[in-house]
């Protein structure tokens, strides 16, 4: 059950592997267990959606898997290499070129233009900016006429496209996206999902995306359902109706469980 997305491919080829990853927040006061011994393997070139009630640990899972946060226990492997959480500088160097992150709040740097924001990860890495790729990505996200604007001058949808372009341009193996369509209208959301589809199908990148939206989830090859920090179910080749059904069922189950634990 907890082994997901391998689809019969050899484990050694996994682009992401989590081995009994747990995360406990709060060393003072009441500790909150956000992830309970999660195991997960994803093959390269796959598109995975993560769903679950709010507070179920979806963001925590992405943060731990992408090296933005340190698991309390367990191991994370990216393309077969173990992530070491000791030193931030080393961890950052490790993430570069391997991992891209698309945040719900975009996290664009306000004093940089769109072009500068998109090329910043490459610059930080000390790499030359690949002009051809930059042009291709920018055209794909439809930002050509916005390149010299600042984030504050853009709409939410445009800012999210900048954030995605930033994640795509440095050509990472895995792109993590935390509710990337949460702040967008249906039309813009569909565009963003197309971009991810394309990253997976055309560029062979791996996308792992948290979402609340069954339609968004139906773009993925596989949907993982997270409840109280554990992967409780998975669904291959999802469609919006079955995903919505499953979410409703899990919602009821969680409500029942919480009612029981309270009485």
């Amino acid at each position: 059950m907890n082994r997901a997305g391998a689809h019969g491919r050899p484990v050694a080829g996994d682009v992401l592997r989590l081995a009994s990853v747990s995360k406990v927040y709060g060393t003072t006061g009441v500790p909150v267990t956000a992830l309970k011994s999660v195991n997960l393997s994803l093959a390269p070139g796959t598109f995975t959606a993560i769903m679950g009630p709010s507070g179920s640990g979806k963001s925590t899972l992405l943060h731990c898997a992408s090296g933005l946060d340190q698991p309390s226990s367990g191991e994370v492997y990216i393309a077969g290499q173990q992530m070491t959480f000791g030193n931030e500088t080393e961890l950052t160097r490790f993430r570069r070129g391997r991992i891209g992150f698309v945040f719900q709040q975009f996290n664009l740097l306000p004093s940089l233009t769109v072009r500068q924001n998109i090329t910043l990860p490459s610059r930080l890495e000390g790499k030359r900016v690949d002009r051809q790729r930059l042009e291709a990505v920018v055209e794909r996200v439809d930002l050509l006429h916005r390149l010299d604007h600042h984030p504050a001058q853009l709409s939410g949808g445009e800012q999210q496209r900048v954030a995605i372009a930033r994640a795509l341009v440095s050509n990472p193996k895995i792109i993590f996206a935390d509710e990337p369509t949460g702040a967008l209208d249906t039309h813009r959301a569909a565009e963003v999902l197309d971009l991810f589809d394309q990253a997976v199908r055309e560029f062979g990148q791996t996308v792992i995306m948290v979402t609340h939206d069954p339609i968004a989830a139906s773009h993925a090859d596989l949907v993982l359902f997270l409840v109280d920090g554990q992967i409780v179910d998975e669904m291959a080749r999802p469609n919006p109706a079955t995903v919505a059904e499953e979410m409703a069922r899990l919602g009821e189950e969680v409500a029942r469980r919480h009612a029981r634990s309270e009485s």
């Binding site: 931030e88 500088t89 160097r93 993430r95 992150f101 740097l109 990860p121 930080l124």
Partner: peptide, 12 residues
């Protein structure tokens, strides 16, 4: 802002 810069690949 520094946090954002680090998240997208800046070392401390």
């Amino acid at each position: 802002e520094f946090g954002q810069q680090r998240l997208i690949g800046s070392t401390p």
